[in-house]
Amino acid sequence: MELKIRDGQWPEASKYGEENVIIAQRKPLAEIKDSLKGYQRVLIVGCGTCVAVCLAGGEREVKLLASQLEIASQLAGQPLFMGEATVERQCDREFLYEIRHLVKDYDVLVSLACGVGIQFLSDRYPDKVVLPGVDTTFIGANEEPGYWTERCRLCGSCYLALTGAVCPITMCPKSLLNGPCAGTRAGKCEVNPDKPCAWTMIYERLEASGRLAQIADIVPPRDHRRAAHPATQIHQAYKRRYSAHE
């Protein structure tokens, strides 16, 4: 796909508005079919939030997968008993509770949510086999219909104030905090000459917003403790409620 950011030219703001979402990709049907071997009753559970926006796991994609599985299983002579359900968000228990009456009729749940939703669905229905129907890929923005780009790597310490709101952790393959490196060539990256150099973009952005002097500032090493996993976060207003867990 042609990259929209070239030679420091920034794409025009999308006419549809940009939206930050978790991006996922439907798994190939063969992989889903393989994981369903031996099961008869299959409920496909979609998620109406991020994966719906990125056309991977919303109500529509639930229908498409159900239809594909029906066709494939009929052709194989072993028709599946299919069910479809789409909840508002699979990363919220209250929405998963809504489908309890449906879930009890099925042996296996194929979740089309991001990795979080899939795990949460299994947490909610631990006696059911829960299988993933998508691969969660990144956090990105919707550049154009059907086209997403990664913009954040969830590093836990945001440097965007220093870098003209261009993320060096995400956009630079070396995640350099003090760039550019010697591999920048005419605004392109040495790792992939088709891709723009993040630090050239940062330079141009700082220049355009009258903050070029800022590029000479040295950014101290990253505090990797902030990116410890699995991460937990408790809102300040809820400290009392969860104090036992801290």
Partner: peptide, 15 residues
């Protein structure tokens, strides 16, 4: 497949 009556076994629940 459908001529063999397979479609009769198909039921769908949608929520």
């Amino acid at each position: 497949h459908q001529a063999a009556g397979g479609i009769e076994n198909q039921r769908r629940a949608v929520a």
